[in-house]
Amino acid sequence: MLTVDYDRLGVGAGTKVIDVGCGAGRHTFEAYRRGADVVGFDQNVADLNDVDEILQAMKEKGEVPASAKAQVVKGDALELPYADGTFDCVIASEILEHVPEDDRAISELVRVLKPGGSLAITVPRWLPEKVCWILSDEYHANEGGHIRIYKADALRDKVLAHGLKLTDTHHAHALHAPYWWLKCAVGTEKSDHPAVTAYHKLLVWDMMSRPWLTRTAESVLNPLIGKSVAMYFEKPVVSVAVS
């Protein structure tokens, strides 16, 4: 289940991509599938090992172009181990809400992005997230949990302050918002609750079958209750005057 729309990023063969806070690797896999040279970057070794195993399996099964390259790297998003302007595309999906020093993390995302390159950032949307926080402390008050709720314009301005240009924005995963409200209402640890189980089956059916009914419902509901907001930025190319 992707939150970032790769068609808006123009990721393809030879594009250098870093997926910062890659987690289980969903955005790393898609970049690799499209032929990019991708780095799945995270601080969780167990997650990285799982991601690496799947990347190798994708290569062995011929699911990626022969020219594509992929690797996983352990590290801190506050100190990315790359030179300025290394990547054509930087992705940070659903990580900034976990990071205390988010301004510092944003600075690093911008720093390693090439001039002319694209930055994609997604975070939980304010309204659906606020409902979750109201319904349940368990949802966010845990180690590594969400420490803030972003308003989209505030996050946008944090990135624009680094000189980038906003190119696009959209909302995603409207059908997932009620699922999390339901979990928060009955208890986030009660995954076997009948209502939670039933809704989860609906989401799995939607992701696996992509039926017209749920796809249409989500597209209509995304502007209203989309669980995530995605923003896309471009780093300007600085012209050097020739004397």
Rank of each mutant, 00 (worst) to 15 (best):
N44K: 07
N44C: 10
A46N: 10
D50T: 08
V51T: 06
D52W: 03
E53G: 01
I54V: 15
Q56A: 11
Q56L: 06
K59I: 03
E60L: 09
E60S: 11
E60K: 11
G62E: 07
E63K: 15
E63V: 08
E63L: 15
Q71P: 00
V73D: 09
P81H: 07
Y82G: 02
A83T: 12
A83E: 15
D84K: 05
T86D: 02
T86K: 04
F87Y: 03
D88M: 02
C89A: 04
C89P: 00
V90H: 05
I91A: 00
A92Y: 01
S93W: 06
E97W: 02
V99H: 01
D102C: 06
D103M: 01
R104V: 06
R104S: 11
A105D: 10
A105C: 13
S107Q: 04
E108P: 03
V112W: 08
K114P: 07
P115F: 08
G117R: 02
S118L: 14
S118Y: 14
L119M: 11
A120S: 13
A120H: 07
I121P: 03
I121M: 05
I121S: 10
I121R: 00
T122R: 01
T122I: 01
P124N: 09
R125S: 15
W126L: 07
W126G: 02
I134P: 00
L135I: 05
S136T: 12
D137P: 03
E138T: 05
G144N: 05
H146C: 04
Y150S: 11
L155V: 10
D157H: 14
A161P: 09
L164A: 09
K165H: 12
K165T: 14
K165I: 12
D168A: 15
D168W: 03
H170S: 10
H170I: 03
H170Y: 10
H171I: 07
A172Y: 04
L175S: 02
L175K: 04
L175G: 05
H176L: 13
W180E: 04
L182P: 06
A185W: 06
T188V: 09
